[in-house]
Design a protein around this nucleic acid. Structure first.
Length: 645
DNA sequence: TTAGGGTTAG
């Protein structure tokens, strides 16, 4: 439990109160109409309950203070409830808490409203403290107070609350308490404990089933989640969302999308949460057609507004589907943009290599008075890294701690290692890793290893690879990169040795896979794929392209081929890479002049990168490739990455 | 009175 999580426990935990604590508002109250001052407490209380805006509540609060009725128990309670219900800012919440403190003997209702407010405003530990304060004042808890305290409650105190619930005979019969406990175990990744509660409940309610489904889905146990989901009748949007989001969050975007279509067919009404989950699924797929369809669905459905959350998800989706223009258009339409909206747009610019735009947006974010977050800096550093902006990157990296008090995390170090490594400052990158207080991860080593290959730094590359191999933290990428490093310096004996080592240790390179969308259908290709019905035409086009490429001086980079093959076979192996097959298929099945969009699961191979630049010029078409790291926009013989990747 | 959804390097 970190003390930083407690916002200001002394505000309501202390029995002695200070002047400031008594004052509900630091600023002078607004002028009070004389008519309000003449009201009797009961009438004032009635007006407070009827008021629909926080502004009105504040006005009535001011009137209560002026007339001295603020200590009247009913007026006091109604004010507190109104603040607790509508508090959108922490100052409203604190106002509500100070009212609680003003009340001589608050009852359980009074406490519950505040506990609930704290818990639902991301202060679960403060909520728990207040709950324990209530117990210490001998106010008996009920189901309401207990379930409020359990909202967002962590496992350890949660277990104690479970015991208390048993003592009060609230479980398993009270559905609210039981479901709150179920949620608590679900958050703590204790599906077995959650399931025991669920099975003990006398009646299976939709909310509890949804909580259980969410629990399984969060754990990645999609099969169990789905079984319970299918067994649950009369599902509402939240229940559908739990399952749709489960698939989206565990790399099953197709299943997520399929379920969303079934949801629509079933007549259930999607809400904001649904579209946010489905948008993230579409972003993973990277296919523009379902994304566009979803966007028009949102626009046509009057009930789903373009809130910052929906906007963020849309921006992210468009960026990852290769349509930066649509993302920018959405960005400009979102009202009340928060920092997360900016973050998604900055990250979007970065992944498309539009570094200057990313940095400009960062400046605009600061101008608007928004505070950048750690994630903002990941986007910013990534932008620098993709364009070789070494000095800027260094500056941002230092500034995040110095000016914004954000301690760099492994992700930020990862960006810096990548930035320095790509720029050829391999030793500086290595020094940075060694200077870190955090343990480096394999990906970070991999990124440095890749830099060693790129800049032909054999000594350091070998050093790192041996370290990874002997410590058992090498992955298939380590072997491939090490082999590439030897190939780059022409040490073919070592290349052969690594290949044998790879075979012996049983590591296998993750198979590359490229997909392309044609006529709103997605086609996938692996290396040497022959499964497509149009395979013959695809290979014919490939051969034709190869001829044209050679005429322009293209030389296959056979040193990239890991297998022990003859030169001709190596060339053959390169020619049938999944991304080349996808582009060939695109060329034969789309109209001339249209953009070809490819999604690849790994980094685009450097030979394909060279080939695509030339192809874009030969056929006068744009080719957009999303690889594991970023986007490449090929056009007129060059790539948006400027060969810096 | 319950529940859930957005951004994240290589």
């Amino acid at each position: 439990m970190s003390s930083a999580t407690f916002s200001n426990p002394s505000l309501y935990l202390s029995t002695t109160t200070t002047t400031t604590a008594h004052s509900p508002s630091p600023s002078p109250p607004p002028p009070t109409p004389p008519s309000l001052l003449a009201l009797r407490p009961a009438d004032l209380a009635g007006l407070i309950t009827e008021s629909t805006s926080l502004r009105r509540v504040r006005e009535l609060h001011a009137a209560a203070l002026r007339s001295g009725h603020h200590l009247h128990p009913i007026v006091n309670f109604r004010l507190q409830r109104s603040y607790a219900r509508s508090s959108s800012s922490s100052s409203d919440l604190d106002r509500s808490l100070s009212l609680l403190r003003l009340t001589p003997q608050p009852n359980v209702f009074f406490f519950t409203a505040s506990i609930h407010s704290l818990a639902s405003h991301g202060r679960p530990l403060d909520a728990l403290l207040l709950f324990s304060r209530m117990l210490s004042l001998s106010v008996p808890p009920n189901a309401f107070a207990l379930s409020a305290a359990l909202t967002a409650c962590p496992l350890h105190p949660g277990r104690a609350l479970h015991a208390l619930a048993l003592k009060l005979s609230l479980v398993p019969h009270d559905p609210y308490v039981a479901t709150s406990l179920l949620h608590m175990y679900a958050r703590a990744a204790h599906p077995a404990a959650a399931r025991r509660l669920f099975d003990a409940m006398p009646r299976r309610r939709l909310v509890s089933a949804t909580a259980m489904i969410t629990c399984y889905a969060k754990m990645g146990d999609l099969a169990r989640a789905r079984r319970l989901f299918d067994e649950t009748p009369h599902k509402d949007a939240v229940c559908w969302n739990a399952m749709i989001d489960g698939y989206a969050a565990h790399s099953s975007p197709r299943e997520s999308l399929r379920l969303f279509r079934r949801m629509l067919a079933s007549g259930a009404t999607p809400n904001e949460g649904t579209v946010v989950s489905v948008l993230s699924a579409v972003a993973q797929l990277g296919s523009a057609a379902p994304g566009k369809w979803l966007h028009s669905y949102i626009k046509s459905d009057g009930s789903i507004r373009l809130t910052p959350k929906v906007g963020t998800a849309l921006i992210d989706m468009y960026c990852k589907c290769g349509s930066l223009e649509d993302a920018v258009a959405v960005f400009h339409t979102v009202a009340n943009k928060d920092v997360v909206v900016y973050n998604s747009m900055i990250a979007g610019y970065a992944m498309h290599g539009r570094s200057r735009d990313a940095l400009e947006l960062f400046a605009r974010l600061c101008d608007r008075g928004l505070r950048p977050t750690d994630i903002t800096f990941i986007g910013v550093l990534n932008a620098c890294s993709h364009s070789g902006l070494v000095d800027e990157g260094r500056e941002f990296f230092h500034s995040m701690e110095k000016d914004y008090s954000i301690e760099p995390k492994i992700e930020h170090y990862g960006c810096m290692v990548d930035l320095l490594g790509r720029a050829g400052l391999v030793d500086e990158a290595y020094e940075l890793i060694r200077s870190m207080k955090i343990e480096p991860d394999t990906v970070m080593w991999g990124s440095l290893l890749a830099a060693c290959r790129q800049h032909k730094n054999l000594a350091l590359g070998e050093n790192i690879a041996n370290f990874l191999l002997s410590n058992g933290i090498a992955n298939s990428g380590t072997y491939v990169l090490l082999s590439n490093i030897y190939a780059a310096v022409g040490n073919w004996e070592e290349v052969a040795r690594i290949r044998t080592l790879m075979k012996e240790s049983g590591v296998q390179k993750e198979p590359g896979c490229s997909s392309i969308e044609v006529g709103s259908k997605v086609f996938e290709f692996v290396v040497g794929d022959l499964s497509h019905p149009k395979s013959k035409e695809i290979y014919k086009m490939l051969e034709e392209m190869n001829g044209l490429l050679r005429d322009r001086g293209y030389v296959p980079q056979t040193e990239l081929v890991l297998h022990d093959l003859g030169e001709a076979e190596k060339e053959r192996a390169l020619a049938v890479h999944s991304e080349k097959l996808a582009v060939a298929f695109g060329l034969i099945s789309t109209r001339p002049g249209t953009t070809i969009k490819i999604v690849k699961n790994l980094r685009v191979c450097s030979d394909c990168h060279t080939a695509f630049k030339m192809i874009s010029e030969i056929v006068r078409r744009k080719i957009i490739v999303r690889d594991r790291n970023r986007f490449h926009h090929f056009s007129e013989g060059s790539c948006s990455c400027g060969d810096y990747w």
